[in-house]
Design a protein around this nucleic acid. Structure first.
Ligand code: ZN
Ligand code: ZN
Ligand code: ZN
Ligand code: ZN
Lengths: 138, 138
DNA sequence: GCGGCGACGTTATGCTATAACGTATTCAAG
DNA sequence: CTTGAATACGTTATAGCATAACGTCGCCGC
């Protein structure tokens, strides 16, 4: 079971190809990166990638990283439905660590309640250096 | 003192023009939006805007909103914050509310310490509807 | 004066994302 | 079976965001 990333069975061919590309990448990919990886499979146009990405993101199988204009496969394909997600992105190796924090989520909820703001979506992205890269540089 | 936004005196002409444009805008502006507003002042090329924006953002006089690819003037021109800044962006009217939360900041700091991640920059952007727009829609 | 530095202006280019069109497939209602 | 809605698809063209690479200018310390 070398590459079981828990890919759902009801994806279209394009969606499956795009998610596969993200799953095998060690770092986030831009839509055009993905396109380049999939030309050999017959994909030719950016829109084919963007349309697949839209569906994958909608379903929570992939995430868009706003500060990179790039995408990653969800790190937790089984239970990531609920709540705020934060991403820690290493500037050195590109690796992304996806995590959730209930305290932060609750705190944002309280702020929204106080100000009467209705939250629809939150993006939280931390840029820096991961432990491995820091260690390697030392 | 109609438009005293606390603009520093040591800005270059281009930086002053760009910051002025941001200060007078009711909502975030893209670099190209800014360029269009400043053609009458003689600015012609995107790079003139981006260079000014780089400096302004570096000094904390303006902020980049990653999820919009746009920029806003700092809402707190007198004491540019040192810590984490969060932005709540209304999808209806475009208004941006800038705030800080020490609890969240501390929580992220704790996460970073636990995982050995060295944070360099954090972006936090909430999309939704502001209280005024919700009220107007009701 | 000279050399380093930082801002500037211009042209060209590259990367990211969507508009607009038509076609193919599926599926359920009539 | 036919029809029509819904959805995915493919293609071309275009829009929107950002930087590379070059040379110039003015300032300031030496
Ligand atoms: Zn996820
Ligand atoms: Zn790393
Ligand atoms: Zn600010
Ligand atoms: Zn609003």
């Amino acid at each position: 079971m070398a590459h079981d990333h828990g890919m759902p069975a009801d994806l279209t061919r394009n969606q499956e190809l795009v998610l596969g590309a993200l799953n095998h990448a060690p770092a986030p990919l831009s839509a055009y990166d993905i396109l380049d990886k999939l030309r050999s499979e017959g994909l030719r146009a950016p829109l084919q990638i963007y349309r697949a990405l839209d569906k994958l993101v909608e379903r929570g199988l992939a995430h868009r990283l706003e500060s990179l204009n790039a995408f990653v496969a969800c790190a937790d394909a089984h239970c990531h439905r609920k709540g705020l997600i934060a991403f820690a992105i290493c500037e050195a190796c590109g690796k992304v660590d996806e995590f959730a924090d209930e305290v932060i989520e609750e705190r944002l909820g309280a702020w929204a309640k106080d100000t009467g703001f209705k939250t629809e979506r939150t993006t939280m992205e931390i840029r820096g250096k991961c432990a491995a890269c820091l260690k390697a540089a030392a």
